[in-house]
């Protein structure tokens, strides 16, 4: 059976391979810091298997995570800008391959969906081939590997490992931000352990008329929106509002379908991202990039979409999630 842990090991192997490539590069501006960061991150993916199975102490991984944060935030990490093709060369290739370039990209979702659909019937000796608990993730990893093979077959790069080298280029351009989603997720778990959601829940119950489903949906979605405006991203807002309202009120009291409640709740947060200068990458950086006079010009253009869309999410959640 292909378990989800195999997928995490694949990620770990990629990180370690990239760390090795960086360490080999003598001209890299932050050779050892970068190599240590990605290598340690890869090892954390392996070690996490035993932490998850509760056969190894979690605090060791906790220390490793803090070391990663320390490396990333003290400027030990840099972008080696690994070699790739020039714009001229790429334009030439684009003319040659044309829309065939989209085939590998389309392979990912197509294979993923096919594997997910086939998973229930794929079995060897009565045992399912694909971890039934994490079908989508395993299917996605299979899709990604298949797509890389398809890409190599269509494009015929000189080195068969070119996808790995090019993956490193993108990873290094993302840099420490690659770790951020996982840290935000961890923060959500810490917040919940410490009782932040409960505290917000007590505050929210003050404004929430008991027994009103509509009021609860509005408070959850508007809360996601406001916390996202304040923090600049929905990721940090989600655990707070979900622990406060989403889970105890919408799912437990009103028996909402959790997948619908949470998916739409997150999107209500995204409406907030359209309206906040705190999401600098999306709203302020482009204003600078386009040399706009009003640095809030992008937000101005987005407000009239973000606010009605928040309303639409409230309506969608109210009518879709509760039956």
């Amino acid at each position: 059976m292909i378990k989800v842990e195999a997928v995490f090991w694949l990620i770990g192997i990629l990180f370690v391979a990239w760390a090795f490539l960086i360490a080999r590069e003598t001209t890299h501006p932050k050779r050892w810091g970068s190599s240590a960061f990605w290598g340690l991150l890869g090892l954390c993916f392996f070690y996490g298997t035993w932490v998850q199975a509760k056969t190894a102490p979690a605090w060791i991984l906790g220390i490793a995570v803090l070391v990663l944060v320390a490396l990333a935030s003290t400027g030990m990490l840099g972008d080696g800008k690994s070699k790739t093709t020039s714009v001229e060369k790429r334009t030439e290739f684009a003319a040659k391959f044309g829309n065939k370039l989209f085939i590998p990209a389309l392979t990912i979702p197509v294979v993923t969906v096919v594997v997910v659909l086939l998973a229930p019937v794929l079995a060897i000796g009565g045992k399912p081939l694909i971890d039934p608990a994490n079908t989508t993730l395993v299917a996605l990893a299979i899709g990604a590997v298949a797509a890389a093979v398809v890409a190599v077959l269509i494009l015929r790069p000189k080195q068969k490992l070119a996808p790995v080298f090019e993956g490193r280029r993108i990873l290094e351009s993302i840099g420490w931000a690659a770790l951020l989603p996982q840290m935000l997720s961890t923060l959500g778990i810490l917040f919940t352990k410490a009782g932040v959601g409960t505290a917000v829940g007590i505050l929210a119950k003050g404004v929430l008329p008991a027994g009103s489903l509509l009021a609860a949906v509005v408070v959850y979605c508007v809360g996601m929106f406001l916390f996202t405006v304040l923090m600049g991203n929905g990721f940090a807002a989600f655990p707070i509002m979900t622990a406060a309202i989403g889970w105890p009120v919408l799912v437990q009291t009103f028996h909402g379908n959790p997948a619908i409640v949470f998916a739409i709740g997150m999107l209500a947060g995204f409406c907030g991202t359209l309206c906040t200068p705190m999401a600098a990458n999306f709203n302020l950086v482009p204003a600078a990039l386009l040399e706009m006079k009003n640095k809030y010009g992008v937000i101005k253009a987005q407000m009239a979409t973000g606010v009605p869309l928040l309303g639409a999410n409230i309506v969608l959640m109210y009518f879709l999630a509760f039956h």
Binding site: A58, E166, I189
Partner: peptide, 30 residues
């Protein structure tokens, strides 16, 4: 412990890494 187990249980968030090689190679070819 919370940082460690939080990291271990949220590893799936970083799955975008598995698509980087294929995106990278098609970017290389335009």
């Amino acid at each position: 412990n919370a940082f460690g187990s939080g990291f271990a249980s949220s590893r799936s968030v970083t799955i975008f890494v598995v698509v980087l090689p294929v995106i990278g190679i098609i970017e290389r070819f335009g």
